[in-house]
Amino acid sequence: MRHAVMVGTGVVGLVLLALGHGLGLFWAPTDKMMGDVQRMMYAHVPTAWTALVAYLISFVACVGYLFFGDWTWDLVAEAAAEVGLVFNGLLLATGMIWGRPTWGVYWTWDPRLTTAGVLFLLYGGYLALRRFVDDPERRASLAAVVGILAFADAPIVYFSVRWWRGLHQIQSTPKTVDPEMVLCLRLSAFAMLFLMVHFVLRRVQIGRARLDRELAPPPAAAAGWGGPR
């Protein structure tokens, strides 16, 4: 059953992504204002939504771990954070590639782009922390705390950067009025959502295998802690 879901989400995601991107590149009408470079949207915008959903899943899992203390919450939190980081990295990279021809610069202090950059660092820190704590239970608690703090920061960063840039900033996203464009965007967004779920499931599986290994030798739990470091 679980295997079927994993394969299913992967296949559906891949097909939808090929469809959405293919139609977006060769079928959707050219944007009147921005020209062909607007086609970047079908690759760029869905990564933003997907990364945010992945981080939200990770946040919920962090809270869940602190409340219920079940390992699965911790594994999901870790997996979703890592997958979110991958999509976040893609978001930053495609944003820069898009920014260069439209604004003439790779990076602007657009509130959304900046928030994405800060989130990338925050979750990079979250994953880095996980690598340095050997005891699984301690790692899970500490990581859950860090994950909650990191996610809570996102809206504050967004609004602070918006104020910082001045409140009268023009939004830079092209208007998607054509139904063809909306369709391509939606296809790509659902594709990445499916792929995200697929990756998270696979990453959870890896985490579980590693955890089983860590928890396997019985004396480890007793001997691992207590002595001065």
Binding site: L121, L122, L129, F132, V145, A150, F159, S160
Partner: peptide, 23 residues
């Protein structure tokens, strides 16, 4: 407190804290 008993605390504390206090 999170990093106090971790070997790499010198690098982890600023790594975790600096992005968080951007606002």
């Amino acid at each position: 407190a999170v990093t106090s008993r971790i070997q790499a605390r010198e690098v982890l504390l600023p790594l975790l804290l600096f992005p968080l206090v951007v606002p």
